[in-house]
Design a protein around this nucleic acid. Structure first.
Lengths: 143, 143
DNA sequence: CGAATCCCTAGTAAAATAGTAGGGATTCGC
DNA sequence: GCGAATCCCTACTATTTTACTAGGGATTCG
């Protein structure tokens, strides 16, 4: 019941892109450095997020990655599902197995509970909360 | 974000023990057969649940496993944590990394949401729901 | 005793995870 | 058009985890 490192990296990367509202592309190298992610690994992750339609990119000298849509229209659930696959807590009823069991219903509850958090938390939310804490919290600069 | 097969087996085994309220031990072989679990694998799982204090056992001719306490005092969360380990959705803040991030707070929300289901669902609940559905013949009315 | 059962230690094939390596394709300023 | 900067693509790999299997040892009880 945990998120892969790859999934975490993906979230951090999208957060990094959301943080700077500007539409200019951000280079892989920059994201990797700021979020402490191995660059080559990050390349694969970003490619996957692009093909999911969450990011866009531009090559060349002023190239980089950028959000394909506003941060308030991308949720944590979107990204996690794109990277780690759909998380059904347990395999759905075995095809051959008629064993009626009380678990599928419970897994549904789990899935709904989870969804209430991850599918309702957008990156705009994350940035906002982070800014809030920034202001009245540790005066630890950065950007 | 999924439960291991081992975890599922553990849940099914404890459910099987909860189902027959009787205090007589149930043999591994019986549980394995009724829940379609590889017997030798199940042995390891049950041993783990016993050492967690959830089950008791008796050897010999009328031996078997039994719940170490009433089914309404064992939750799904208990069993999953014992088998799959504590599920923190993502690693807690990296010790060396001061990078203040908006994610720990979100992971807390996830954990709480999850807990609301799995730590409040006892095996007594599961058995009861399962009996209910049994009675009225799976009318399958969903949402 | 001896049959039935749980108990314990090891081993292992396959898959998933977390990367690395090396170069190819675009873009853009000049 | 050249070349530097950047993204893009395919393949490889070491490590860990998963889902078991094997083989016997220790208890219990009639």
């Amino acid at each position: 019941m945990d998120v892969s490192v790859k999934g975490e990296y993906a979230l951090r990367a999208v957060f990094e892109l959301s943080r700077q509202g500007r539409p200019e592309p951000v280079k892989i190298a920059k994201i990797a450095e700021r979020q402490k992610i191995p660059q080559k690994f990050l390349e694969m992750i970003l490619a996957q997020l692009k093909q999911g339609g969450y990011l866009g990119s531009r090559r060349g000298v002023d190239g980089g990655y950028f959000l394909a849509r506003p941060a308030d229209q991308i949720t944590v659930g979107d990204i996690l599902r794109q990277i780690d696959g759909p998380f059904q807590p347990a395999k759905r009823p075995f095809a051959d197995e008629p064993m009626d069991s009380p678990f599928p219903e419970m897994w549904d509850r789990v899935e709904r509970a989870l969804s209430c958090v991850i599918d309702r938390t957008t990156f705009a939310d994350l940035v906002e909360r982070w800014r809030q804490r920034r202001v009245k919290g540790v005066p630890n600069w950065q950007i």
